[in-house]
Every structure is written in structure tokens, then in C-alpha cells.
Amino acid sequence: MECEKFEKFIFENPEATTLNGQFSQHIKECEKCEKLWEIQNEFAEFRLDQSKINLPLKTKSYLLRIAKNRSFEKFSRIEFIEDTFIFAIVVSTVLTGIVASFYQIVLNGGMQNRYIKMLFDFIKDNFSNFATSFSSLLGKESFVFLISVFLITFSLSFFFRVLNSEKKNIFSF
């Protein structure tokens, strides 16, 4: 009966560090409740002392520096991929624009160089659909060309940047 009362007291008062006379007597007689009281006291000691102590400033600045470097590494990885992506978009757009304009010039008879004319005649003869469609920047082939150039540029630039990058830790996730 006393054990039940004592357990109820511990249940209701998880931060208690003192006992009344009745319970004090009980824990002297009951090993199980004594152990429970010892454990409660061990933990209550932590709760009692919540005094504010701080880490030395030197340690704090060291930790902040490490956290900052970690965050910089993480963002460098994102920037690395972003830069490559932007580079590939610019290269593929410019290249597609140049090729499409070139076709326009040739188709309108503006290109007089006979070797280039021969080259485009060859393309026109063998890939007529492609050549016709490419005369417009909105043509299907222009789009396929743009995507292909983008993928090739992105892959190559990513590959070479990884090979040549000083940030070798970009894969150290």
C-alpha cells in the first residue's frame, strides 16, 4: 500500500527532491522505492541547476566558422550546377540562333561563297525536311537541335569543370 502511494507521489511530482516523514521512513524499508527515489534525485539534480553558463567566445567563433564553411561548400555545389546550366542554355541558344540565321541567309541567296553553298545544297538534297524546317527558329528541328546542343554542352562543361575544378569536394555529400 505504501509503495503504491509512493509511486503515485513520484508520478505526480517528477521534480520533487524532498520527502515527507512517512515516505522517508518507507524508502528506508523498501529497496525498490529507494532505488526509484535515487533515480528521481539523480535527474532532479539536473533540473534544479539550470544556471546559465556559456562556451568561451573562442570556441563559439570556431563553431560558427566551421558552420559557415560547411554552408559555403553546400552552396558552392548548387552554384556549380547552376553555373553549368546557365552556360549550357546560353551556348545552345546562341548556337541555334546562329545556325538558323545562317540557313535564312543561304535560303534567301545571301551567301555567295560557293563552298558553303555546296555544303548547304548537300544538306538540302539529303536532309530536305530538316533544312526546310530549320529555316524557322520555331521549327521542330530547331527545337531538337537546341535541346541536343544544350545537353551536349551541359554534359561536357560539367564533366570538364569537375575534372578541372579546384573544389574537388563537390561530391563529398
Binding site: 539536473f46 539550470q50 546559465k52 553558463i53 556559456n54 562556451l55 560558427l64 558552420a67 554552408s71
Partner: peptide, 20 residues
């Protein structure tokens, strides 16, 4: 990547951990 957040985490827990 907010450094202030890390600083606040340190402020919040340094004392408790040191005490522990």
C-alpha cells in the same frame, strides 16, 4: 544556410549541455 540560426541554437543549448 542561415548563420544566425546556428548562433541561436548555440545560445539556446550551450548552457544546458555544459551543465550536463
Amino acid at each position: 544556410g542561415d548563420e544566425k540560426a546556428f548562433s541561436m541554437i548555440i545560445e539556446k543549448y550551450e548552457g544546458k549541455l555544459l551543465n550536463f
